[in-house]
Design a binder for these strands. Structure first.
Lengths: 253, 253
DNA sequence: GCTGTTATGCGTAGACCATACGCAGAACTA
DNA sequence: TAGTTCTGCGTATGGTCTACGCATAACAGC
């Protein structure tokens, strides 16, 4: 969240405030040589190229040909920079559902949009989340998600809960597949061989008598077939939407 | 995952191997003055007291009255220590479902057990996950979860997918509530006032014309009522289990 | 045009962090 | 007793974020 003032009203970090178009530059002093968007873009470029771990203040500054400490005139802290990176990293929201779309198709499209954004920029998953969304684009995603449920029988609070549930699922699924990819890159194992290798490792470790159910799963070769991660994503997504559908039916009936 | 040898078989870090009881101490050289479990316990103690960020090698060493570098005789790296911390942090798995429990009750119990573990040790959520579970207790959790679906009509791979879906949900929900708690501690706002404050902030930022659905949610006072986080957890859990139920019905019929 | 105010760029330095390396000494085997 | 091997850990390297303060640039008012 954000720090608060005396009257307990939450207050935004300056850099976030001018992402909302509030806050005007004071007319005095020398012209700024950089801009917040330029810094954020540079940071995103670094993350895209070398991962989030490579994003240090000095590295970003180098990317801009500036000195490290110069950045602190624009962003209050590294955490603030990360927050802004997330905002541009997700990119613009997918837009409201096309007219005539039912809620299920709409949410499916919405979930896939987030899925794609996270696949493109897997470093987004490594940014420690410190609070609910407060940047313009993030709230844009929320808006578009809510609109999918516009015509539904759900209560407003339920709509929100459904969205939370979905976005959590997407993040989680993206985290798992990105771990496989990163593990593969780190160990040099083919991505398609990661899960089989994991299966062999576990099979070697566990005692079938103490882990019968797990043993059965392994024996069934569950981890051997390298199935499309998109299928796994679809599976979970459909389960969740089935659950939402059950709720909607109940509210309607 | 883990590094691999020439034959492409994944190999465990030494400290993990002796968590599985493999690997015997060589008889030569001076007696070890510490033990891996003692180090991990100390690290867990630090995390419990001051959060995961306080867990540095020097801090853990200080806790034990040892020198920083002495720890590296027992764990290969800080990441390895973190992995072991997670193993003891979750604690023992909840055990197989009591006889006569149907799958839904079993999974509910299982999900709540993980929920409770994460509530007790919220630093677990901050440990960067680098691969699938390979420690004894973690696989124990998996085993107990799988057993809940023992009698079901699902394929082995579907059981696994359901478990992945559930554990992801639990993690996600725990992350959200722990963020509220941490935000509250950081800003000094009452926990019950966090969401209302967030609601006021967003209301101040957004233009109702551009964010109509979001505006409607706020106007409905969704964020004002401070509802029990356990209710929110139950809501999502029931949606997911409804979805699983629909699948099981389909497989059965 | 001069002066005061205010912002910017950024150098320096402090307080951390993980960890590579190497050495002294302890405990075992032969 | 000699040799081997393992432990404890001091030192040092290179990285992190960022607090602070100074020189300078640009404007406002007189």
């Amino acid at each position: 969240m954000a720090a608060t003032t005396d009257d307990n009203e939450p207050v935004l970090p300056p850099a976030i405030e001018n992402a909302w178009g509030l806050r005007d530059r004071p007319p005095k002093g020398p012209r700024p040589g950089m801009s917040v968007p330029a810094i954020v873009d540079a940071a995103v470029r670094v993350a895209d190229a070398d991962g989030l771990a490579a994003v240090s203040m000095s590295r970003v500054a180098k990317e801009l040909g500036a000195a490290t400490m110069a950045l602190y005139r624009y962003v209050g802290s590294k955490d603030e920079l990360l927050m802004l990176m997330v905002d541009v990293g997700y990119g613009p929201s997918p837009g409201p559902p096309p007219p005539g779309t039912d809620w299920r198709a709409g949410l499916t499209r919405w979930a896939w949009a987030e899925h794609d954004a996270l696949r493109q920029r897997s470093w987004l998953l490594h940014v420690p989340i410190t609070g609910p969304p407060i940047t313009p684009q993030q709230l844009g995603w929320m808006e578009d998600g809510l609109r999918c449920l516009d015509g539904s029988t759900l209560a407003e609070s339920e709509k929100m809960s459904v969205l939370l549930l979905l976005t959590g699922y997407v993040r989680n699924e993206a985290t798992l597949t990105s771990q496989v990819a990163e593990g593969s890159r780190a160990t040099g194992v083919e991505p398609s061989e990661m899960m089989p290798a994991y299966g062999r490792l576990v099979a070697r470790l566990i005692d079938p008598a103490r882990f019968p159910a797990l043993h059965r799963v392994l024996a069934a070769g569950v981890l051997n077939q390298d199935d499309d991660p998109d299928d796994e994503f679809t599976f979970g997504l459909d389960r969740i939407l089935d659950g939402v559908e059950a709720l909607i039916q109940r509210r309607a009936g």
